[in-house]
Simulated assay, not measured.
Amino acid sequence: MIPACGADVAAVREGDVMVSSQPSADELLELAVRVARGAADTARRMRAEGVSAVATKSTVTDVVTAADRAVEMQVIAALREVRPDDAVLGEEYGAAAGGVASGPGSVRWILDPIDGTVNYLYGLPQYAVSLAAEVDGVVVAGVVRNAATGDEWTATRGGGAWRDGRRLAGSTETDLGQALVATGFGYDPARRSHQAGVVAGLIAHVRDIRRFGAAALDLCLAAEGRVDAYYEKGLNAWDQAAGGLVATEAGLVFSGLDGAPPGPDLVIAAPPALFAPLHERLAKLDAAGGP
């Protein structure tokens, strides 16, 4: 069992998590979980103290807080203390604050410090720390921790997806008309308008639509079967790296349209029985199109 750690780098060191230069997926996951738990503690504490230094990024509705930046720097510092040569790609600072992944066996960490920042801003309990480890360009370990609730999902490539000691297997629903489907919307008004049109065309063909506002959590909820499927346009690597591995290891098909890999154009995560009909419907609705 992996014990919880505090918010500082020393907690990682005290836990004796010294990962070898050629780490296994399990070693990387152990480090990721310890670091993500400390980061989630910081995010929750800063939310309780009051959201500060709110700024905007791509649009006036795309917010970033002081906590986003503080949590990202905390995670980078903690990872560097244990694995100083690894690269880090984070939402707020990009690759600027990390090392350089080069050579066989190189590791890159992919981080969303607070996925669901608007929820965080409003005090809604759906915001998460998402941290994945990529080796030679392939995500091999990931953790998503809901900082508000303490819910935590983990996965290693080939080792399954887990929550609270229970292996996840996705939804058993086979009828798209009975499927509860999660999605999300971009910050650009033109993109949201296009995405609203897709929802309008889809909603009569599914049980209902849910929008929780945190892609990493959506992917984990689909992996757990708490929603039957998920799709969204506009995701970045940090939005989907850890949650995508959780979904994949739970047996979901995790893909884009027409065989494309999951990426900014579109991400779909659904059990095999639902993937084909959902994919067909989204293709007809041009879900990957628009701005």
Rank of each mutant, 00 (worst) to 15 (best):
residue 1 M to P: 13
residue 2 I to F: 15
residue 6 G to F: 12
residue 6 G to W: 08
residue 9 V to H: 04
residue 9 V to S: 15
residue 10 A to G: 13
residue 12 V to Q: 15
residue 13 R to F: 05
residue 15 G to H: 15
residue 16 D to R: 14
residue 16 D to V: 14
residue 18 M to E: 13
residue 19 V to S: 06
residue 25 A to M: 03
residue 32 A to Y: 03
residue 32 A to H: 07
residue 37 R to L: 10
residue 38 G to S: 06
residue 44 R to F: 12
residue 52 S to Q: 15
residue 53 A to H: 13
residue 54 V to M: 12
residue 57 K to F: 01
residue 57 K to V: 03
residue 58 S to V: 10
residue 60 V to G: 06
residue 63 V to M: 08
residue 65 T to D: 05
residue 68 D to R: 04
residue 71 V to L: 06
residue 74 Q to R: 08
residue 82 V to C: 12
residue 85 D to G: 15
residue 85 D to C: 05
residue 88 V to E: 14
residue 90 G to E: 06
residue 92 E to G: 12
residue 93 Y to Q: 12
residue 94 G to I: 05
residue 95 A to H: 13
residue 101 A to F: 09
residue 102 S to F: 12
residue 103 G to Y: 06
residue 103 G to M: 03
residue 104 P to R: 15
residue 107 V to I: 13
residue 109 W to A: 06
residue 113 P to H: 06
residue 116 G to M: 02
residue 117 T to V: 04
residue 119 N to G: 10
residue 120 Y to W: 03
residue 120 Y to Q: 00
residue 121 L to Q: 07
residue 123 G to M: 00
residue 124 L to H: 07
residue 128 A to V: 02
residue 131 L to G: 09
residue 135 V to D: 12
residue 136 D to P: 03
residue 136 D to I: 06
residue 142 G to L: 00
residue 145 R to Y: 02
residue 148 A to Q: 08
residue 151 D to C: 00
residue 152 E to D: 01
residue 153 W to E: 03
residue 154 T to L: 07
residue 155 A to V: 01
residue 156 T to M: 08
residue 167 R to T: 06
residue 169 A to N: 09
residue 172 T to L: 02
residue 181 V to I: 10
residue 181 V to W: 02
residue 181 V to D: 08
residue 182 A to T: 09
residue 185 F to I: 01
residue 186 G to F: 03
residue 187 Y to H: 10
residue 189 P to K: 08
residue 190 A to K: 11
residue 191 R to E: 15
residue 194 H to Q: 06
residue 197 G to R: 15
residue 202 L to K: 08
residue 205 H to S: 14
residue 207 R to Q: 13
residue 211 R to A: 10
residue 212 F to H: 13
residue 214 A to Q: 04
residue 218 D to K: 02
residue 219 L to R: 11
residue 223 A to I: 06
residue 224 E to D: 15
residue 229 A to Y: 07
residue 229 A to M: 07
residue 230 Y to A: 01
residue 237 A to V: 02
residue 238 W to H: 14
residue 240 Q to I: 14
residue 242 A to M: 07
residue 248 T to W: 06
residue 250 A to V: 04
residue 257 L to C: 01
residue 257 L to T: 02
residue 258 D to W: 05
residue 259 G to H: 07
residue 261 P to Q: 02
residue 262 P to Q: 03
residue 262 P to N: 02
residue 266 L to Q: 00
residue 270 A to P: 03
residue 272 P to S: 06
residue 277 P to I: 14
residue 279 H to D: 15
residue 282 L to H: 13
residue 282 L to E: 12
residue 283 A to R: 14
residue 284 K to F: 08
residue 285 L to M: 07
residue 286 D to W: 10
residue 287 A to Y: 02
residue 291 P to N: 05
